[in-house]
Design a protein around this nucleic acid. Structure first.
Lengths: 199, 199
DNA sequence: CGGGATTTTGTGCGTCCGGTCAAAAAGTCG
DNA sequence: CGACTTTTTGACCGGACGCACAAAATCCCG
């Protein structure tokens, strides 16, 4: 790799993070290239040079979102009882508040948003989303398998089926929450599910 | 109301149904007015004259979608054991195949799609979606209350919490299914949930 | 210090978008 | 039959979109 040439005047990672916030809060279609140019304080050409076109930029942001989420998920489940950790994962699906900023509070799970908006017509998006789903279920199923062996979780269903159910629930919760929901009822629903998983 | 004037040359209800299919399969943003004009075989001005702008047209289509869905939901739950009916509701969230046509197979639940794409920036869409959620949970909770009294469903959680959990699951399932999912695992997850609700 | 490589900057392009409008057509009713 | 009302038709608008490009700027390396 050539190490010569004019150096980039902006931090690529930071730009991607800011773009993630914009894309997350507004969605793909509703975020124009001009919006990105304004929010990232760089010129049109620089953006295209660094990230390719808008679609690739978005997909890179989604990948960053998932990588961050996966890291937290693994950490949350790596030791201790599984059910309380899963309860947290469900109750706080996207940990949205940690990303809140002046560009508007992101809402819902970005994987879910991408599923709804891009997947039907974009094979690349479909792959990113499908991979994220697969990793989620795999990580959760592994944890549930341990927990079943420990007697913490019921063996009435396979860990795979339970993990799939948790994926549905977390995606549904993230989605429904965008339209506003009663927190108490939502938490009661989460508790009902967690209780049902208990051995 | 004046009963005079040139009569409309197309069936308004049928046009709305076709528009529903288009919007359902492609989403709001990805469906252009031109797409609608082509698919509905009418002129631009006629469309605007009959339905107002694109946004109102879409919202009318969503309302039609929900009305249809609600009718089926009520029918499915009105008598007989509740859990098998709920299992069907979950396993076949949007009864997509009945609407399949040449314009492309619709995917996912249109309420969910609307939630993801429009709700954050459209108060009217938010209201339609929130109302649909409320009606779903109310209808399902009523059925679960009966089933709890009959000893069919566990009383470990309130009917409201159980209904909310079912809303999350059906929305999540519809969404995740757009990215493709393994049918067997998905059905196992549904069964796990239904079993957990059993008394 | 100079040549090559790379990024920045700003402008410009073609396209498609949602939406409007005026005139013609097709009915109803007195 | 003629005035009135509504819909149809098809052209048209301004604007935003994604994207490309050429020239200037900046840094590395010899």
């Amino acid at each position: 790799m050539a190490r010569t040439g004019r150096p980039r005047a902006f931090d690529k990672d930071q730009a991607l993070e800011r773009a993630l916030l914009l894309f997350w809060s507004r969605g793909y279609g509703a975020t124009s290239v001009q919006d990105l140019v304004d929010a990232l304080a760089l010129e049109r050409g620089s953006l295209y040079g660094a990230f390719g076109d808008k679609r690739h930029f978005y997909l890179a942001a989604v990948q960053l979102y998932w990588d961050t989420y996966e890291r937290r998920l693994v950490t949350a489940l790596e030791d201790g009882p599984v059910l309380p950790a899963l309860r947290e994962v469900l109750a706080n699906p996207a940990r949205a508040q940690e990303y809140a900023s002046d560009v508007g509070v992101p809402q819902g799970c970005m994987i879910g948003n991408t599923t709804a908006e891009l997947v039907p017509q974009d094979a690349d998006a479909r792959e990113v989303v499908a991979r994220s789903h697969a990793r989620f279920t795999q990580i959760v199923a592994d944890a549930l398998r341990r927990a079943q062996a420990d007697g913490e979780v019921t063996q009435d269903a396979t860990p795979e089926a339970q993990a799939q159910l948790l994926l549905f629930t977390v995606q549904g919760l993230s989605l429904v929450s965008r339209a506003g929901l009663d927190t108490a009822t939502a938490l009661a629903a989460v508790d009902a599910l967690i209780d049902a998983l208990r051995a």
